[in-house]
Design a protein around this nucleic acid. Structure first.
Lengths: 145, 145
DNA sequence: GCATTATACTTGATTAATCAAGTATATATC
DNA sequence: GATATATACTTGATTAATCAAGTATAATGC
């Protein structure tokens, strides 16, 4: 039996496990919003004119274009986001933050997310380490393309 | 517009994005094994007598018991794992590594996973940092319960 | 300008995984 | 030792997300 495993692979196994648990935790504690839905509303709220191309949203969440299409369907129905055609390039359609989504985010979910984030990190976590780790994550997600 | 977001929450958003991309990458490059399937075969191969309780497997992957039940159904059918009843506690059933699964892992997937892991990490990643992050991740997943 | 290639998005079919509820067994409490 | 609670697992219903293929439009190369 060969029991050896590299530190690198071990890191990815741990990452997968942790992220599964984290996603479930976020999904259940954002006042009725799923984590992905929260991220969509949040990124829209941060963007210029509160609207983004669907493909850019996909990039932000690390999902496929298809995944975004499907995520947005119920959100549009409920009135959290709106579809905005784009005349300069007919392939593109923008998603914009609708009133309902803006309220949903502001009233509760944003605060819930912030509180959860602070609760989840071990109290001893060093700011400096968090920075290093964040940088590693951006580099990886930038590289994976 | 309130554009502020804590470093902590930002970290979790980045983590989610990166993990989505990573999972897709692993899923498509382990010689026909999904990432979760790979992890199951791997953890079984590492465990005593190459068998584990389903609930412990769930813990290792960060999934629910239900998720594990469903993951194992096709794997059992294909002959990668076997179900083993446990007389000392009739609630429990063990999963063991079957011949097919053992071969699948040894012939290709283990090597693929190791190579991928090394490819995905930025070359400049410091061993020391990787250790720190791994520790942070274990602490978090241990705490989340 | 025409043909090729690339981009943005949607859709059908499928797979993955959750939750809530249910079954069966074991453990603890009184 | 009967009752209540906890644990391990499965199942039905549902939601999430993929891939592969298709549509439509735009950009590139010659």
């Amino acid at each position: 039996m060969n029991n050896s495993i590299s530190q690198e692979l071990n890191f990815f196994l741990l990452l997968a496990k942790t992220q599964s648990m984290l996603t479930r935790r976020f999904d259940n504690n954002l006042g009725g919003l799923g984590f992905n839905e929260f991220m969509i509303l949040f990124y829209l709220s941060q963007s210029k004119e509160e609207k983004m191309r669907r493909i850019d949203l996909a990039g932000k969440l690390g999902l496929t274009a298809s995944g975004i299409t499907r995520l947005l369907i119920p959100m549009e129905k409920i009135g959290w986001v709106k579809r905005e055609p784009y005349t300069e390039d007919a392939r593109v359609s923008f998603v914009s933050l609708a009133k309902g989504g803006k309220n949903k985010l502001a009233d509760e979910s944003m605060e819930d997310a912030e509180n959860l984030a602070k609760d989840l990190l071990p109290p001893a976590t060093k700011t400096k380490d968090l920075e290093t780790f964040s940088l590693l994550l951006s580099t990886m997600s930038g590289t994976i393309g």
